[in-house]
Amino acid sequence: MFVMTIDQKDSRNSADRVPELLDLLGTLDLDLPFERTVGDEVQGVTSSAGTVVDAALLALRQGGWSVGIGVGEVSLPLPASSREAGGDAFVAARDAVERAKKTGDRPPLAVASAGTGPGAAPETVAAVAQAEAVLILIARLVCGRSPAEWRILEHVEPHKWGAKTEAARMLGVSPQAVSNAVRRSGWQEEWAARPAAAVLLERADRAAGGNQS
């Protein structure tokens, strides 16, 4: 299972953005939906690695959020709220978000497992590190795009034949302008790499002894 803890950065000097983030993440299918846990922090639980990738990149695109992903066991049966749940994955998510806050110029995202501390199995440490590395590479693409590029990319449906032509017609711009935005932004590379990130998260979860769906 995966637990995600997402914390607002510099919340003491900015408006509360939690409701906005909850609306955004509310479109995702989770085992326990995201909810405010304490202060400016939200938490959710899912058995889907693909959903983890989607949620992480949605939050990072908004800017101003630190994303922690915990992999491992969650106590079953699940309660009605993540605030009432427990398990190693919750501890790992807390460790991950605290580390994500200290990543400097790197996208503020981290993956952790309760089994990656001193004496942890090498395969668990490696699996968690590999999942984090690929997510960071994808996050760099997402976080590095300009508003002008996003205005175009929002209309380019991934993996759809003719999507760029359709977007150009909808936006009233040239197909070349859309193609340039797609190329510069790494749009196709992002969507090609998302499944790989999900596979690596699943591997990390298995290595950490997480609940299997």
Rank of each mutant, 00 (worst) to 15 (best):
G72Q: 05
E157I: 10
I152E: 08
T5E: 11
G50A: 11
R36K: 00
L58A: 14
V53Q: 06
A93C: 05
A177I: 09
Q212H: 10
L22R: 07
G210E: 01
K101I: 02
G50E: 15
G87E: 04
G26R: 05
L153S: 01
A80G: 14
G119L: 03
G64W: 00
A204D: 02
S66D: 11
V142C: 12
A55F: 04
A204T: 00
A208I: 12
R17P: 07
E41M: 03
H159I: 03
D16V: 00
L201T: 09
L109P: 09
D205K: 12
P158H: 12
P77W: 02
S185M: 04
V173R: 02
S11L: 07
D7F: 02
A163G: 08
S81P: 03
V38D: 05
A168R: 02
R145G: 12
G144I: 12
V67G: 05
D95R: 13
A163E: 04
I152D: 06
A93I: 09
Q176E: 13
P175N: 05
E35I: 01
D7L: 02
N13L: 11
W161A: 15
V97H: 06
T37P: 00
E149A: 15
G72D: 05
D23Y: 07
L58C: 05
W150D: 14
Q43A: 03
E35C: 01
Q188A: 14
M1P: 11
A208D: 09
